[in-house]
Amino acid sequence: MFPRLWRYCLALTGRRDLADDLAQATCARALEKAHLFDPDTHLDRWLFRMAQRLWLNDIRAQKARPVAAETDPDEVVSLQSSTETNIFAREVFSKIETLPAPQRVAILLVYVEGYTYAEAAEAQDVPIGTIMSRLAAARRKLAEDTGGVQ
């Protein structure tokens, strides 16, 4: 599960070093809140939601961050702006690195983690229509980047 948590953090942050930190922080927070975890629920979803909150809180706390989540969530953390420090093997992630973070998270949750649209919407605190838009935009962008559009 830890690799899946880390991958979710990578989708959120767009950078390996930040994903390392966020996954670690999520584990720390989960320790603090362990007594609140209901074993009959999905641990992975509990952790994903925790990671999401930590990340958004961190964005809000750091006013120096160029783009704040509350002003334009679709622009939060582009890998393109962090290529100097991104130590992740770029060839692996290059296909989706150009997507805005919300689109990366949407496709990860729905297509990789198996969330329904409703579950992804709840996890992201957005309407289902927003999830639909993010998925459609991400699919089209990825297809375009691989030469699928004439």
Binding site: R4, R7, A23, S94, K95, I107, Y111, R139, A143
Partner: peptide, 22 residues
């Protein structure tokens, strides 16, 4: 078919990313 191709790209990329988890 175009939209499907985009989905396939995403799945492949995230599958590969999993192997780079610390």
């Amino acid at each position: 078919a175009l939209l499907d191709r985009g989905k396939e790209q995403a799945i492949q990329a995230f599958a590969a990313a999993l192997n780079h988890a610390p």
